[in-house]
């Protein structure tokens, strides 16, 4: 353990912790935009600067390892003023668009603008302007709102292992995009959307559906595969309008493309909600008893006439392990064939 003093308070942390970790573990808040607890430290937004005795300049607490005996000041008029300048600079190149922004309410930048009471722009000047160009069905990228915090770049590389996007160009024109500014063509896991601290990245499916207020969050388990990621369903008027992952779930906030974006089948008009039996060439509603009886009769007939091995069963990766167990039992014990498989071979 390492002992240090933060804002006059003695703090003990594990070796390898950053000054930021140490402060937060002691309940001392430090603003950050580019930091994400599950990604490598970046040191780009400069909001988390603190003063450490013996170091002549303010340093970023996210990148500075906590050391024995360190004396840290996280808030002072000087530090607050510097943080304010940084925020003013970010906002000087940001659309004044919060009224209609998808990020409003969950945007960290907006939160800090509020906390620091930023209203005027002391640095009026050029703003980056980009054409919208997303041909993909999942992710909307409004790069004028991007603050180049690099979180999306890191999550894509460090967590997803895809590295579909990166920093391009230099200076003020720095932009996050796929190589050669091509269209985004990746796994569409949406991890980048999840970590973006602003309204720059949004899921197209939930864009312009609802603000956070009238949305109910339901924590459940993704039904797509046996991995069983924890998800948060964002529900409005009894409809799922978005899926995200809770940071404290065992899957640490990460999902795949199906879990994050594949929820619209739930209230699709094409979805089957009752058994249908084809009568006179037309599918007609039937009761479960009627439908199951029909299936049982047909299977028995095929088995008697052609033998059990003319029947095969395919189950779904979306079933639970128990359901899959019962299914193979049905095939092997009741029907008497080993022709059984499932679709979890994606």
């Amino acid at each position: 353990m390492i002992s240090l003093t933060i804002d006059g308070k003695p703090v003990s942390v594990q070796e390898g912790s950053s000054v930021l970790d140490a402060a937060r573990s002691a309940g001392i808040p430090i603003p950050t935009l580019c930091h994400h607890p599950k990604l490598s430290a970046f040191g780009g937004c400069r909001l988390c600067i603190v003063r450490i005795e013996g170091i002549p300049r303010p340093v970023t607490s996210c990148t500075t390892p906590a050391a024995e005996g360190m004396v840290v000041t996280t808030a002072s008029p000087e530090i607050t003023a510097l943080r304010k300048t940084v925020l003013e600079l970010i906002l000087s190149d940001h659309p004044n668009d919060c009224m209609v922004c998808e990020g409003a309410g969950t945007c960290t930048l907006q939160e800090y603008a509020y906390a620091f009471g930023l209203r005027d722009n002391p640095y009026p000047g050029e703003r980056r302007q980009y054409e919208a160009c997303d041909a993909n069905p999942f992710i909307e990228r409004d790069m004028e709102k991007c603050i180049a915090c690099g979180r999306c770049v890191k999550v894509c590389d460090e967590i997803q292992g895809v590295a579909a996007i990166n920093f391009t160009y230099r200076g003020f024109k720095t932009k996050i995009c796929p190589a050669f500014e091509r269209e985004l063509d990746c796994e569409f896991c949406g991890q980048c959307v999840q970590v973006c601290p602003t309204g720059a990245l949004t899921g197209k499916q939930w864009a312009r559906t609802a603000r956070t207020l009238d949305v109910q969050k339901v924590r459940t388990v993704c039904g797509y595969c046996g991995v069983g990621c924890e998800v948060l369903l964002h529900v409005q008027n009894n409809r799922i309008i978005r899926v995200s992952a809770p940071d404290d779930g065992w899957n640490e906030g990460w999902l795949c493309v199906k879990g994050r974006f594949g929820y619209r089948f739930v209230d699709s008009p094409d979805r089957l909600t009752e058994p249908l039996i084809r009568k006179d060439g037309v599918l007609q509603p039937a009761s479960w008893d009627e439908a199951l009886q029909l299936v049982a009769d047909k299977l028995t007939a095929i088995k008697t006439q052609h033998g059990p091995d003319t029947i095969g069963g395919l189950s779904s990766a979306r079933c639970t392990t128990e359901e899959n167990y019962l299914f193979q039992k049905l095939m092997r014990a009741a029907i008497g064939t080993n022709n059984v498989d499932h679709c979890a071979r994606l």
Partner: peptide, 21 residues
């Protein structure tokens, strides 16, 4: 310097641009 900033950190990326303006 403004044109050669790597774009990683806010004060250099945006700040030098504003200075220049």
């Amino acid at each position: 310097t403004q044109a050669e900033s790597c774009g990683k950190c806010v004060p250099c990326r945006v700040g030098t641009k504003r200075l220049l303006e």
